[in-house]
Computed example of a mutant assay.
Amino acid sequence: MSILQTHPRGLSVRETTSGIPGAQRVVFVHGAMDTGSSFSRLLAHLGDVDAVVYDRRGYGESKLGGRAPFLIEEHVQDLLTLLEGHRSMVLAHSLGGVIALAAAQRSPHLFAGLLTYEAPMPWAPWWPALSLPRDPGNTEQVREAATLFLRRHLSDERWAALDDEHREALLVHGPAWAAELSDARSGPPAFAPEDICVPLLAVHGTLTDERHREATALLAQRAPEARLATIEGAGHLGHRRHSEALAALLREHLAATAEAKA
């Protein structure tokens, strides 16, 4: 059974129950310039878990009346509110991983475990420069920078193939993207790997870029309860394009955390 609801914090949340007694609860956190719907293919392989998928503030149906800027701290508070009273496994993609790791550092008791797929470290001195608008409040600058970001992640060919309606549906998320990335880049580190004290599976694709491979490996090396895993042939959009392999890693992590608890 799937229920779509508006959370008290204004988030659009969809909870899908498997109907299986004792099924494990998994909360999914999407990345920048994305929505919770990006996990649809992954969820098709996970019918035996109770899934919670939401649009982060500023994205999808969680626009929250244009209350910009949407800072990392606000996203962390949103996730902790969703977890409160429901100790859960969390699967997070890209910048969603930064949010989930920051939340786990603060409230590890709410996490049964955590799987991150290519969580970045944009505050690190070795992280490449981001093509962010000089003024996150300038509509034209945000639109131009967001277009460059999308072309880089989708490829110029795929971007050119989109019609105007699909392009606008992506670019409407530009203000949230610009605010959160600017905050993550210029603010203090959102988390310290050494302080992540939950069972963590840090995952990257073998065809992703060097910065995401390095960040994932560093996270796996330094977090006390972390393991590293890779998905062969996957790039940064592995949650969409290699969903079956990622679902298998999540199942493995769920089983490992359940055994450890027992």
Rank of each mutant, 00 (worst) to 15 (best):
T230L: 03
L43S: 06
M89G: 10
M1R: 04
V76Y: 06
A176N: 04
R222N: 03
H204D: 10
L249R: 00
V203H: 15
A176E: 03
A119Y: 00
R152V: 13
V198E: 14
R222P: 02
H166T: 14
A258D: 04
H212P: 07
L80M: 08
S37P: 03
T17A: 15
A258Q: 11
A260H: 02
D135G: 07
R241G: 04
A119K: 00
L201H: 14
A220D: 00
D209Y: 15
E180T: 12
L250H: 02
A184K: 14
E140C: 08
G31Q: 02
E168Y: 08
Y117E: 05
T206H: 09
E140L: 12
E15L: 09
R9L: 03
H86D: 08
L114M: 08
E165N: 15
V49K: 13
L154M: 15
A215G: 13
T35C: 12
P136I: 10
S88F: 12
S186G: 14
A169K: 15
S62D: 08
K63E: 14
Q221D: 10
G96M: 09
R241K: 09
G187K: 06
A260L: 02
L237V: 09
G58H: 01
E118R: 02
F111Q: 01
G22P: 05
P133W: 12
M1W: 04
S107F: 02
L11Q: 00
L170Y: 12
R9N: 04
S12N: 10
F28R: 01
T206F: 09
A176F: 05
S186R: 12
E74K: 02
T116H: 07
G19L: 03
L154K: 13
G22H: 06
A178Q: 11
R25W: 03
A68E: 14
L130G: 04
L154S: 12
Q5Y: 15
V98S: 11
E165W: 12
E244A: 11
T257F: 00
D164P: 03
E74T: 01
A192I: 11
L42V: 15
Q221N: 06
A184W: 12
A226Y: 02
V198G: 14
A234H: 00
V26E: 00
I196N: 03
W159M: 10
R57G: 13
Q24H: 13
W177H: 05
T216D: 01
L219R: 01
G47L: 11
H153M: 13
R106N: 06
S186K: 11
H239L: 09
P189Y: 03
S62K: 04
A103T: 04
S62V: 12
G22K: 07
L4I: 11
H7F: 00
A119N: 03
V26H: 01
L218T: 06
H109Q: 14
A103H: 05
I20L: 14
H75G: 02
D50E: 03
G22A: 10
L171K: 05
E140Y: 10
D48H: 10
L114T: 05
